[in-house]
C-alpha cells in the first residue's frame, strides 16, 4: 500500500536522510559518553500520536517502566513536525550516569538528571535536523527542546488520531542498560515541501 502520496522511492529517501542524520548525532553522543551508541534501521510509517503512544507504552512496559522521560522540540522548514528522544526513567538514569554521578538508589531522575537528558536530546535532535538540513540544502529551524516526564500517552498525545508521518530509530548504549527511541512526527501537510527538497537534493548529486 502506498504511504499516503509518497511513492516507495520517496519513502526510502526520507528514511535514508534520517539514517544519515542520526548517524552523525549518534557519533556526537558516543563521543560525549565515551561509549558506542547502537542505532536501528529507521522505520517509516503513517500513524497517529494516539497509536504511537500505545505502541511505545507497550514496549516500555515490558521493561517494567511505565513512565518515560522525553526531550521534545518542534521544527519547521521544508518540513515541519516534532522531534522526540524518549527513554524509560531507569534508562535515563543509566544514560545520564555516564556523564555525572547518579544516586544508585534513585528510581526516577530528578531535576539535575533531566537537565542532562535535555542536553543529550538537544545534541541528538538538533544534530540530526542539522544534517538533514544540510542534505536538502534548506534551513530547518528547531525550537529549543524541553524535557518532560510521564506516561507515553501524556507525552505523545493519547487523543490525537490525525495521521502523521512517523519516523522511528531505536537508540541503545552498547552495554545495553539504556535503550530508548528517537521519534520524528512529521506533519503530513508539510510533505510536499519535503518531497520538493528531496528532489532538489537528488538533482544536485
Amino acid at each position: 500500500m502506498p504511504l499516503l502520496s509518497l511513492d516507495p522511492g520517496e519513502a526510502d529517501a526520507i528514511a535514508e536522510l534520517f539514517n544519515i542524520g542520526m548517524g552523525q548525532s549518534a557519533a556526537a553522543l558516543g563521543d560525549m559518553l565515551g561509549e558506542e551508541v547502537h542505532l536501528s534501521v529507521p522505520s517509516l510509517s503513517v500513524s497517529s500520536r494516539s497509536r504511537i503512544a500505545h505502541q511505545i507504552a507497550r514496549e516500555f512496559d515490558a521493561d517494567s517502566a511505565a513512565r518515560v522521560c522525553a526531550v521534545q522540540g518542534d521544527f519547521s522548514g521544508p518540513f515541519t513536525g516534532q522531534a522526540m528522544l524518549i527513554f524509560p526513567e531507569r534508562g535515563t538514569l543509566a544514560l545520564v550516569g555516564r556523564l555525572m554521578p547518579v544516586d544508585p538508589a534513585a528510581s526516577a531522575p530528578g531535576e539535575v538528571e533531566l537537565d542532562a537528558l535535555t542536553e543529550i536530546g538537544n545534541i541528538i535532535l538538533n544534530g540530526c535536523l542539522a544534517s538533514l538540513s544540510n542534505l536538502v540544502e534548506s534551513e530547518v529551524a528547531g525550537a529549543l527542546p524541553c524535557c518532560s516526564t510521564g506516561q507515553p500517552a501524556e507525552i505523545i498525545g493519547a487523543a490525537d488520531t490525525d495521521p502523521i508521518l512517523f519516523v522511528r530509530i531505536d537508540v541503545a548504549l552498547a552495554s545495553g542498560d539504556a535503550c530508548g527511541q528517537v521519534l520524528f512526527l512529521l506533519n503530513i501537510a508539510s510533505l510536499d515541501g519535503f518531497r520538493e527538497a528531496i528532489r532538489k537534493a537528488l538533482a544536485n548529486l
Binding site: I20, M22, G23, Q24, A26, A27, E36, A174
Partner: peptide, 9 residues
C-alpha cells in the same frame, strides 16, 4: 559505507 560515523564502528 555508513551514516554511523562513530570511531567504535
Amino acid at each position: 559505507l555508513t551514516a554511523n560515523v562513530q570511531d567504535a564502528l
